[in-house]
Design a binder for these strands. Sequence first.
DNA 1: GTAACTGCAAAAAATTTGCACACTG
DNA 2: CAGTGTGCAAATTTTTTGCAGTTAC
Lengths: 148, 148
Amino acid sequence: MMKDFECTQESYAREVLREKGLKSTTQRLAVVHILHISEKSLSIGEIHGGVKDMLGNTGLATIYRTLEMFEDLGIVKRLHFPDGGHGYAFSQGEHVHHMVCVDCRGVFDFSECPAENFDYASVEKQGFRVKDHFIQLFGQCGKCVEAA
Amino acid sequence: MMKDFECTQESYAREVLREKGLKSTTQRLAVVHILHISEKSLSIGEIHGGVKDMLGNTGLATIYRTLEMFEDLGIVKRLHFPDGGHGYAFSQGEHVHHMVCVDCRGVFDFSECPAENFDYASVEKQGFRVKDHFIQLFGQCGKCVEAA
DNA sequence: GTAACTGCAAAAAATTTGCACACTG
DNA sequence: CAGTGTGCAAATTTTTTGCAGTTAC
């Protein structure tokens, strides 16, 4: 039984999965759904909890396997927090970076990439060939600024 | 017995520790030394191994405690790899970002910050107050490009 | 149908903690 | 010497794995 949670994010995920010959299982779509309705990045445990609320028993291992796969597929992005923890956020493949609120772990996208106009020539002079970059802004979101 | 490994990095660490009223123990200085002489970022296990080679028995817990503290003090930086792992590199407090070779995990600094000229106005319009950022470039270093 | 997935429970890896002893300042 | 820091071993947490049974396509 494969539920359909209807929404852009979910059809996007279905699409990516189909293209790769992977199955759109209930569990996988539920993970997308949980991340999609969340304003903030979620830990593995939170995702697991959310999926269990939706589907009943679900193995934690499935969540791990799903997230790893989604990260490879560009469906989710893993975020790192200053305290060493990490979380996941839905990320529709496009080149998007994230601002993370260090108080509530809320996630906000920004599409202008600070590295876009960066002159890689200086670093490539050392022979280094840049292939990708990871950028994440930290700060406080509007709500948390007010609450402080 | 507190050994002295003489070098800029080590005296820098001593200095930071003294300022905070923390002790410059042999183990802490050894961690600095190991990271300093390494061309690449090191995992906790590698650092532990290196320190044990220098000093004999050393508890893994000490390494964890030291690295956490060093990260707070800005003496080391934790780096994240695409495969989900992470490592540590010496980082002398200044605003420096790192390029990481995905093959050998080598670390190269670059001081020009791509975010320097970034217009935060656009994101701050949403009420977000940017406090810090994490930037890391991925790619291949000269050696690994040749080896490929 | 059948290959890809899942749940479960167990195993392995990573990190933290408590406490008696040791070392720095 | 006083209090910070360490080693050790145990506890906890996090992540991975194997496999019999399901499910999407």
